[in-house]
């Protein structure tokens, strides 16, 4: 089964995102900040990471830079999911190694489309 880590300090967002990923046959883990996410990735590297930007302790940007330097940390597809919606922020995120970028507010269609963009096609779920 495909695995996904949802990293967001909002429990509400984590819950909404979890539902979307679970219907796409992902096994979902959660982390409420970058530091906890990094620990989780150290244990098991997920296939995909949905990543908020602004979080206490370690933000999404610092997490991503640290992740990409970790052994095996180049593997997960990272989708930023944030209210940071200006071009500069998007460019920084991509430069730091993000695969896709979701601007909040988001809905199921957007998440599905973005996952397809990074290679998780809906058809593959049946397998």
């Amino acid at each position: 089964m495909k695995t996904c880590l949802i990293v967001d300090d909002s429990a509400v967002i984590r819950k909404v995102a979890r539902r979307i990923f679970e219907t796409m046959n992902f096994q979902v883990g959660e982390a409420e900040d970058g530091e906890k996410a990094l620990t989780a990735c150290g244990e098991t590297m997920p296939d995909a990471i949905l990543l908020d930007w602004n979080m206490p302790t370690m933000d999404g940007y610092d997490f991503l830079r640290a992740l990409r330097k970790t052994p095996g940390g180049e593997k997960p597809k990272v989708l930023f999911c944030t209210t940071e919606n200006d071009v500069g922020a998007i460019a920084r995120a991509l430069h730091a190694g993000a695969d896709e970028y979701i601007m909040k507010p988001f809905d199921r269609d957007i998440v599905t489309a973005k996952l397809a963009q990074v290679g998780f096609l809906a058809e593959a779920d049946a397998a």
Binding site: I90, L94, E100, Y101, I102, D109, I110, A113, K114, Q117
Partner: peptide, 8 residues
């Protein structure tokens, strides 16, 4: 712009 359009 988020449905179908790659962020790049």
């Amino acid at each position: 712009v988020q449905r179908g359009l790659p962020v790049q």
